[in-house]
């Protein structure tokens, strides 16, 4: 099997980091992709505008769930300003795989949930790039 399902992705899919929910989260947001049924929820605990703790829960394909796991690792401890700066390219680079237009939505679902939860941004990250 080539890099599409390389160990890194499968590891995050089979052993998701920061999985679960938080009690009394400061931010909690969930979204799904009705086309394929991928679903991701993210809970965040803030301290001084930093992400002190983060959990995600969800179901769906390996790309969507591994991406959520990887994203939580990327932003834990980061300030909200740093999260604002985070681009879809940052996440895709971390995933390290090239994806077609359908699967890219799987990969970016977690980022959409994070940004919507933090800033109320409802659009799909990077939607304007391949509309």
């Amino acid at each position: 099997m080539d890099d599409f399902y390389r160990e890194y992705i499968l590891d995050h899919y089979k052993n998701p980091r920061n999985y679960g929910t938080l009690e009394n989260p400061d931010i909690s947001y969930e979204e799904d992709n009705p086309v394929c049924g991928d679903r991701v929820r993210i809970d965040i605990k803030l301290e001084d505008d930093r992400i002190a703790d983060i959990r995600f829960q969800g179901e769906g394909c390996a790309i969507s769930q591994a991406s959520a796991s990887i994203l939580t690792e990327m932003v834990k401890g980061k300030s909200l300003e740093e999260v604002r700066q985070l681009s879809k390219e940052d996440l895709l680079e971390q995933l390290g795989i090239s994806l077609g237009p359908v699967r890219i939505k799987c990969a970016l679902l977690s980022l959409k949930v994070l940004k919507a939860g933090v800033y109320g941004i409802r659009g799909w990250p990077g939607e304007e790039d391949h509309a």
Binding site: D2, Y5, C61
Partner: peptide, 21 residues
């Protein structure tokens, strides 16, 4: 295993199937 993952692995083998609703 999600249908998208099944279809993606099959595509790597040259097999075209559909995944979804």
């Amino acid at each position: 295993v999600h249908a998208h993952d099944v279809a993606a692995v099959l595509d790597r083998e040259g097999i075209a199937v559909r995944a979804g609703h």
